[in-house]
Nucleic acid binder design. Sequence first.
RNA 1: GCGCCCGUAGCUCAGCUGGAUAGAGCAUCUGACUACGGAUCAGAAGGUCGGGAGUUCGAAUCUCUCCGGGCGCGCCA
Length: 535
Amino acid sequence: MDVREHLRNGLRAALAEAGIDPLPDDIALERPANRNHGDWSSNIALATAKKAGKNPRELGQALVDFLSVCPPAHVTGVEIAGPGFVNFRLVDTWLHEVMTDVLEQGVNGYASPDLGAGAHLNIEFVSANPNKPLHAGHGRGACFGDSIARLKERCGFRVTRETYINDRGVQMTNYAKSLAAAKADEPIPEDGYHGAYIHAWAGEMPADADPLEWGLQRGLDSHRATLEALDIHHEVWFSERSLVPTGAIDDAMDDLRAHKAVFEDDGAVWLRSTEFGDDKDRVLVKSDGDLTYLTPDIAYHRDKFSRSELLFNVWGADHHGYVTRMKAAMQLLGHDPNELEIAITQMVDFARGGEEVKMSGRSGDFIALDDVIAEVGADAARFTYLVQSVDSRQTFDLEEVAKQGMDNPVFYVQYAHARICSIFAKAAEAGVERSPLADVDASLLIHERELDLLRSLQELPDIVRVACVDNAPHRIAAWSREQAAALHGFYHDCYVMSDAIAPELTQARLALVAASQVGLQIALQLLGVSAPESM
RNA sequence: GCGCCCGUAGCUCAGCUGGAUAGAGCAUCUGACUACGGAUCAGAAGGUCGGGAGUUCGAAUCUCUCCGGGCGCGCCA
């Protein structure tokens, strides 16, 4: 049981004794930044005194007096400090219980809060045009979306990974023309695509192939291969084009009309998106009869809702202006706006050794995501894309990330895992057999390095929950670095096996290291980064 | 002009629903191996949290305003 429950129960009893009624719903407990303030601290006296019309310091003292007489489990001291904080000092047994929890629950059980309760969540990400390879900028949304999927899965959602293929419209026609021109050694049309890949792909194209159909498949194959190199696998590749023959677009229009969500003006059909916060109403059917981009996308989202309770989209910052109208469209169709969550990833700049690398869309001169993976490796690419909040613009220095040293946090973390494996290998070599957990005396773990490792492991469930709720995989990356630092520090100061180490302590430390391995594996799995046994 | 994101150490960035003396990595300087992989560890130095005002016991965090940067504001996709 989480030690905080013991403390909260004690605080509730103390509050009741002090005449607080009703009791607060939530009692915050935090680990003070300053160790002198104890192991756990609560601001509950400050928070409730105001409402109860009491002096915070006096209420805090009353709580302390009560808790000193009936201390919760593990507690050795309770003090009042500052304006009214209640500080708890605990014996290390509370941390030893953390180790037991981690090992008993394992990689699949520890730090897996059930937030989703089995709800079906469709996560759409990447959704790039199939007329060109994925570029370096796509990597962020791809890694972010997949890590979100991993987080939601761990937290009890049933997840479908999906990507939308923009295979309908003029850009596909221009792409086909470009392929055909390249194949015939003719100049690429002005409105075509001029990247080097066009010529490479045209060279592969059979002479009798339909450039559009062949090109579509070639583009999809390219995307699929790139994503698989990053260990990203979409269950559904949804074709925009397919919305026409299935009647999905017509159905969506009928549905919108039935909901009085559209009107006609100037020969065009408009969506009443201003009813739900949009700046202006949006055209769905142009006066020439063509559909705007929005219309099939509405039909697509409507289709997704027919297959899933909750939708999650990952869009680049260049599409953020589109969020309001899509949410408005879904609300006009009767959906709760909270059932469609849209995460925006800010742009990525690329550099080599501090020198900015220009990416120009017009000339087709961009860094392919494949090239990033080839240059830095899939693990380093994923970790780097995820190490930073997607709310901030990112600078991705290919030269820095390609380094296989301390500059590179991904190696630091992976090396911690490899070290653990190395310790186990060494133990096996020495003929040391791991005792069952029940026979391990965890109370032997009293070194500050050992306790640091356990404090960090204790935080993981909270970190996972926050990362899931806030859509923040970078919190996992940050935790993995802390756990790795704790492991390296432990490794440096605490030998697991040695003539000077008692067999019982060896067993306790092997268990501790195993717990750390569980934590690191959970974190690396959520990031989609491998946990190597050796490097 | 309007909307969204950002501004924290020399550099790259964390900082959870407001908490006590604002953190990490890199870079810089100084140290640590006759034992499990030194791809490691320890210490030092480094700050008007963009500026200002407000809310309160308490603000990097919430509100307002200004400054600076990015991205959007089509009957394009």
